[in-house]
Write a protein that binds this DNA or RNA. Sequence first.
DNA 1: AATGAATGAGCCTTCATTCAT
DNA 2: GATGAATGAAGGCTCATTCAT
Lengths: 228, 228, 228, 228
Amino acid sequence: MPGAALKKTLPPQSDPDPTRAKLISAAGEVFAESGFQSATVREICQRAGANVAAVNYHFRDKLGLYTEVLRESISANQGAIVQEAVTTAKTPEEALRHFIAGILRRMYGDDRPGWNFRIMAHEMAQPTPALGHVINEVLRPRYDQLRGIIGEILHLSTDHPTTRLCAHSVIGQAVHYVHGYPVIAILWPDLKLNQLKDRELVANHISDFTLRNLRALARQSKRKEKSK
Amino acid sequence: MPGAALKKTLPPQSDPDPTRAKLISAAGEVFAESGFQSATVREICQRAGANVAAVNYHFRDKLGLYTEVLRESISANQGAIVQEAVTTAKTPEEALRHFIAGILRRMYGDDRPGWNFRIMAHEMAQPTPALGHVINEVLRPRYDQLRGIIGEILHLSTDHPTTRLCAHSVIGQAVHYVHGYPVIAILWPDLKLNQLKDRELVANHISDFTLRNLRALARQSKRKEKSK
Amino acid sequence: MPGAALKKTLPPQSDPDPTRAKLISAAGEVFAESGFQSATVREICQRAGANVAAVNYHFRDKLGLYTEVLRESISANQGAIVQEAVTTAKTPEEALRHFIAGILRRMYGDDRPGWNFRIMAHEMAQPTPALGHVINEVLRPRYDQLRGIIGEILHLSTDHPTTRLCAHSVIGQAVHYVHGYPVIAILWPDLKLNQLKDRELVANHISDFTLRNLRALARQSKRKEKSK
Amino acid sequence: MPGAALKKTLPPQSDPDPTRAKLISAAGEVFAESGFQSATVREICQRAGANVAAVNYHFRDKLGLYTEVLRESISANQGAIVQEAVTTAKTPEEALRHFIAGILRRMYGDDRPGWNFRIMAHEMAQPTPALGHVINEVLRPRYDQLRGIIGEILHLSTDHPTTRLCAHSVIGQAVHYVHGYPVIAILWPDLKLNQLKDRELVANHISDFTLRNLRALARQSKRKEKSK
DNA sequence: AATGAATGAGCCTTCATTCAT
DNA sequence: GATGAATGAAGGCTCATTCAT
């Protein structure tokens, strides 16, 4: 087992389960469930099997822990499949499909289900000092990217109101399945978003719904150009 | 005691300024801002100019007050313009436009801006025991109504997955402007949703975006029927 | 017993032992023993037989309680015998004797032994935000008063360095018996400052010690004037 | 192993920068500022550039460190200039002047301004278990020495109440400028005790103030003796 | 010899609630 | 009918100390 040997010689920074990592993980759960304000340090430490003072020691603050959770959530997002899939797409339409499918997959498909999306839901219901950071680091790049794709399809600039409105239509349709999850689960109990099949159903619907519009709008704007 | 009798026969709303009503009004504000958990009884009582014990006296509980706020919010919604406008519409397409415009108007246009919508945003981020009640009394009727309109346009049953998906697309696009408000305000600062013009811009976009799809889908399903 | 009847008709504002008063009294003790920082709200509340939250309810803060204790301590000082005795004295020398005797009596003779003096000792060892207030309300008036008396004896202005130095000599000698109490009790165990006899011994010593100097200095300055 | 042997024979003070010494130095500062109770181990270790556990490792306890600081402070005091100057004085009066000047110089003139004096101020406001030690090792010898000088001038025994009262008058006047520093700085802002000139002004005042009394009292007691 | 990590006790404060009036 | 006073539980945080290395 040379691999195991190699692992052993690695510096101990990759400790299998250090308190710090367990705290972040537990905090992710709790913050996703209760939001920053209502989450309690005690609850987090209990789930992490750590002392109450551990948060203060490792992160100085409840807010410090929260910030760290967000940072990790962000960096986990950055190199993400979404990004990759989008950039490797051949046509903008394909890119949009990847984009939408990626969002839904990350919402329910990952090991940490919905984590950052649910945290962001809380962040919007009750913003914390970290909101600005989140927007600039996570949301804005993705928003710009989406507008780029849509603008390309529409033959419009990324700043054109129509481009923006369509981008918001995409975002609204997608995040609705996270923000509105507790309600959807009751009003439409047959939809099982943790199953791949239903996730694809939704993703395809949103993609079709959107692309049909974009194509029509693209034809309109071309016609306008010609009539000029 | 004719005076006492007279008093009894007087409608109770003639009380000019009962503590109870002021409490509900103040609670609405605070709950909309902070959600149930983070809202404090002290803050509510202070804004209502009432004693700290007033909430427990009049509503037994913080949760009792919250439930009452929701009930009022609901009854204010029931006989609402939305309902009315929809039922007076001549075609289902017109009804859909009224429906969407009504939502946006109620979000930002009313005197109590966004009240119940913001409360519901909190309710979804962090459900309370009252969520079930809210769903059944407020959300489900509206959801069924919307599916009725869409089903009519699509020539599909209200339970058909496509009908449901389209309904969710409408809802998602619309509520996005409430739930995502803090973010939208930063990412698209030029959009002023408290101004009628921009509200109409958004409402028309969502309506167009949706109806263009519904018509196409309706053609598809008709074609399918024929090909059978 | 007409007096008792009269008492009964008095407004109940003079409740015999309300929590608020008990808190202030207990806080006075504890603050005098431990100083502001080291005193704990729990200890205070326990001695007052009240709940931990009582401090927050009545005084908003630990600091709020502390401020109130100081204020009370001050107002108890203001109309005090010291003041009175000094103003009724016929000669400045007699006034000085009253002044010194008054300080010593208030240090150890009162029901609340040394309260404010010990608090002030803490305040000097480790100032709190309330120090400025204390200085202006309590210390400065007394300081000015003392300089007035001494200046009169010396035939010098109250601002003259000699006047100030002599004033500090008086203050230093007197407060030494409070600030240095724990040490004096060990180094000179025979001195019982809680007994009138020894208090008078000390007060007379300080008075004699001081007055002998002041007279000599007065003669000197007169001589200087003449020689001019 | 000649190197090891050499190391062993080297005096330990040659260690250029041992953690232990830095800890004591930092602790001196912090204890002087905040007193034993309010000083925090973290603050001390931070200023010393040492680990949080360093105090417990080197001194077993916060109290152990404190005791060590006092011991050092004392031994630094023992062979001190005060002592020396006093013993080399030719007359008791001169010795008293040296004594008083020495106290004031040590209070404000040294590199470590007021260190042990400020610590002792805290010790009196809030005694620690180390107080007894401090009294016996530092204060009592000095107290006895002072009484010796005064007794000599007065032709009275060191235990005579008058001797003691006069000794306390000297101590009280002198330490007043340390204990009362924060207040004096406000009530008499023109006095700059960190400047030699003002220190001498004060020292001379106290010496004159005291000696004038002692001489008078000496005459009195001589007269008494004669009249017997 | 020395330290980073972790701990449990305790601090001040705030909360929703109840009690006596 | 309504309120000021009071309460116990809990929250975030800091502290001196210990443990494993």
